[in-house]
Design a protein around this nucleic acid. Structure first.
Lengths: 340, 340
DNA sequence: CTGTTAGCGCGTTCAT
DNA sequence: ATGAACGCGCTAACAG
């Protein structure tokens, strides 16, 4: 006899409660549902006692089966090891719990096959809604799912998927970055981004960077992508003549780590000869060089807001698709000290 | 009409498949389950076609309700923002998926109330098993749950809870640390740990540290805990006379961050005047000072192993409770360069 | 206010 | 090899 069936046998059910309280299952159901008002004081009390005595817990699976409400929401995450994703997930999770939902984490490891598997799982478990922070390379499956349940995108827009989006105001963030660098006297800028893979933040940040650099007559800018020859590219940039002091603008936490590691390998004393500004704040930034200047995203709030958007949809809102853009907070440290 | 009921209406069920294939629900059920061998070639093919045509997905909720198998695993995590926890979770999740399970993440934020809520949720969703990395302050609830389902502890032992434990061989890890520091010429050691809260790794590491330091006649050791006056404590240690070169041994990633931040605040040039060795490897360690020497845990493997233990139990294993201890890997960097 | 009944989608006897 | 019928735990009509 496996432990499963033992668990099954031991599990106290609604019927047990009903019998113990001397009422019908329906009354118990009303008690645990929202219809407690329909019960007399007496029965309510007896049911409450019975529940406490027996340690009864409603079976969400059964409730879900009947009502179509599992109180489960799924979150697709491209990369759980990215601190940004975790921070957002933490926000989502706390909002979930606050509203009586639980979170099924679906990590896709940036892999299309895994994304497909997770979408299948999400469907199998009847999650009520989906928070999506992934590549969206399973577009068809994603769209099909979207017909069945509300979805909200986090951070990354997915083309041809008409759903709410909670993320960053990328142009504004880039403007904050460029203005700060400019004000500190930097004139030769390089955006370091992870490789373009079609995800919207990367595209948008690069585009905004190019556009805004051109708007400053005294600024020069270039864009590179983290890859095997990152060291060489960084080195070349630092060697070549330019219009003035040089600075890197790292488009996210991963790019920042890669860049600082590379510069470190190249033997540079961080940050004597150049500036660096990071998009995303990480806890170790104060420790490197004189500290890394960062643009902090309100990650927790982004997660909370994403869930709230989803909740509205779950409650029936049919309002047009919406985009929520958060702003960044500039945290100045030694890596962008003035060169004027 | 809410989108929920639309989803309900649209959902293709086993009956739809059966009708389309011209067979009974039972046959479809057999096809879905493990009894595919009992079906004739012909019916199997027709069912397969029908499933593909309709895009049918079995409803795990219903299956779970009937069989008591939800294919859901719960993981209780004390602190999702701790990289260690995340890495382990990632291992758990990939093992889960490989075996057809999904993971419900239950963050407790080191909070007893939240731990209680999550345990209730876990029960409500009929998860088949539990992976626990949390305070275990809801001991009664935890033990009660353990009667219903298998559990495996990760990293932290919980007293009076007789279940498998997957974690680190703490005495061995401490030995590696102390031997390395000793060999590099350090003689005055300070263990920096998060405050003792009863969790076993903290207790074990501190105990092993004290014991092993005493085993070396030429070593002196002390233990402090991260708190508001960490700066002052570190300062005092560095000022006071000792038997030789001083080094910190940080008992985990959080302690390492706190310690390096404090030393940085104190104005020290890391790591000119003292050594530092960290238990747990983080990606930014190469960047600080000449790099932070670390003892890396096989976090991913720990997660995988934890799931595998759980799986054995789910498959009915009644073998006695087991403890799996992993070892660390020493990664030498500049923070422990020789002082001889 | 309360109990009875009929499913939700599926697995599992029993027959055949 | 296959189908009919029942029930998992619960909610939602419908009666009373």
């Amino acid at each position: 006899m496996s432990s499963i069936s033992i668990a099954q046998r031991n599990r106290v059910t609604m019927l047990d409660v009903a019998e113990r309280a001397g009422v019908s299952k329906a009354s118990v159901s009303r008690f645990i549902g929202d219809d407690r008002a329909l019960l007399s004081e007496l029965t309510a009390e007896r049911i409450e006692r019975a529940i406490a005595d027996l340690g009864y817990r409603p079976n969400q699976m059964a409730r879900g089966l009947k009502r179509g409400r599992t109180r489960l929401i799924g979150m697709l995450i491209a990369d759980v090891r990215n601190p940004y994703s975790i921070a957002v997930m933490h926000g989502v999770e706390s909002a979930c719990r606050r509203h009586g939902y639980s979170l099924v984490m679906c990590n896709t490891d940036r892999d299309q096959v895994q994304e497909g598997e997770q979408l299948a799982a999400v469907r199998a478990y009847n999650v009520e809604g989906l928070i999506v922070n992934t590549l969206g390379h399973q577009l068809d499956e994603l769209r099909e799912l979207h017909r069945e349940m509300p979805m909200v995108l986090v951070d990354r827009k997915v083309d041809q998927l008409d759903s709410d989006l909670v993320g960053l105001d990328n142009p504004a963030a880039v403007a904050t970055a460029i203005n700060h660098l400019h004000a500190q006297g930097y004139r030769d800028l390089m955006l370091v981004s992870e490789p373009q893979d079609g995800t919207s933040p990367r595209t948008e940040r690069a585009a905004a960077f190019n556009r805004q650099v051109q708007a400053h007559a005294d600024l020069q800018g270039a864009v590179i992508y983290t890859s095997n020859d990152l060291d060489a590219q960084l080195h070349a940039f630092l060697q070549r003549p330019g219009p003035g002091p040089k600075a890197f603008f790292c488009a996210n936490g991963v790019a920042t780590l890669a860049t600082t590691l590379a510069l470190h390998r190249l033997g540079h004393n961080l940050f004597d000869d150049f500036g660096l500004l990071a998009l995303d704040e990480l806890d170790w930034y104060p420790l490197v060089g004189g500290g890394i200047t960062a643009l902090a995203q309100p990650t927790h709030e982004i997660g909370v807001r994403a869930f709230e958007c989803l909740l509205e949809r779950l409650q029936g809102s049919q309002s047009p698709t919406r985009t929520v853009d958060f702003g960044v907070q500039l945290i100045v440290r030694g890596s962008t000290r003035s060169r004027l």
